[in-house]
Design a binder for these strands. Structure first.
Lengths: 194, 194
DNA sequence: CTTGTTTCATAACAATGTTACGAAACAAGG
DNA sequence: CCTTGTTTCGTAACATTGTTATGAAACAAG
């Protein structure tokens, strides 16, 4: 009574393929040039797959963004032994290695050009290593005993803002971003030191 | 020999009107919902006007963004007497009062969803009051004597990053952004203090 | 082999940036 | 006053893209 009918092709592995292909297109041409027809063609399927597996373009991009946050989270976990400085350095390193994805992750949500806001819990997770490092430094007595989450948000804002300005190329044309970034990290350390 | 022909309607005043109407639409519905047909209808003209006066949609948005940077520049100039703290407070105030425009100004350039990157000199101008305040504080001996432009970029990154995260709603769901912002401004003051 | 059911690719649809065409508007000359 | 010539700009066609609807493809059961 349940003829299995036509075999399923829109499987989870195709879902992964679509995610990878989309991320590739974003990295190659930027978010504006990503079309569902190109995505489908690159994955050797049809645009219907995007709708049956994700629901639409914005959900596809949201999934790519969430994957980006997870990748970023991993890099932060790996850098956690380096303390606050290590996390700060790893932040910019990851952003420069995944420029287009980083632009989509933060610029997409900010510009609201397409509805690709990261899932709140995924974005919050990415911040956990930083919060832990802040709390650890506070326990060690090297950091001011302000609320850890607030300090973490402030520090994240610092590094995110500098990286954003660098990637968006908004600022002095001859800016030495690497130097500014390192100097800012030092200033953050002094500013929040106990 | 030079019959004046049909009178010109695509004049500079219509250009201003288009700019105002576009900024309104951006503020009301966000950049994604801005269509040339709507812009033209709101200005009681045709889409041709956008092409003859700007060249296309991206140039129109770029002009809006440039106007935004000029408005922001004015608010910074007005806040200059308040010193670094005053500039920092004015920064967030302006951003919150022009949320959609701010999103377009920085998120648009970052996401690269549409080519609306601000003119470099306009964006650089917006930073001049901050650079001056940094230089003044250094002359007064209250700020570390690092290159003024680098310090300014670092401070700008701090405030921009926090405001961006707040507007993009990326971060802890229950974050107290105002408190984090004020704490960050204080930390910046301590971090760069002489 | 037919039938029935599920799945998915193709094609139609709507919206939008862009471009091409031709009508509108006006001055000069008859 | 009408015709002609030239410039200007609104309308309509075009191409692209997200989305939806339709019908063919694929397979199991009888």
């Amino acid at each position: 009574m349940d003829p299995m009918a036509r075999p399923v092709v829109h499987t989870d592995s195709l879902r992964q393929e679509l995610l990878a292909v989309t991320a590739d297109l974003v990295d190659r041409d930027g978010p504006a040039r990503v079309t569902l027809r190109d995505v489908a063609a690159a994955a050797r399927t049809s645009t219907t797959a995007v709708y049956s597996l994700f629901g639409g373009k914005s959900q596809l991009l949201t999934a790519v963004v969430d994957d980006g946050f997870r990748s970023f989270h991993e890099s932060q976990v790996a850098a956690a032994p380096g303390g606050l400085q290590g996390l700060g350095v790893a932040y910019r390193t990851w952003a420069l290695e995944h420029q287009a994805l980083y632009r989509l992750m933060f610029g997409g949500a900010l510009a609201a050009y397409v509805d690709c806001q990261p899932s709140p819990d995924v974005a919050a997770d990415a911040m956990v290593p930083l919060i832990n490092a802040v709390a650890a430094a506070q326990s060690a007595g090297t950091l001011l005993p302000a609320p850890a989450e607030m300090v973490a948000v402030a520090i994240w804002g610092q590094v995110h803002g500098l990286v954003s300005l660098e990637l968006a190329q908004v600022g002095p044309p001859d800016a030495d971003w690497a130097a500014a970034y390192n100097a800012a990290l030092d200033a953050v350390g002094r500013g929040w030191a106990a």
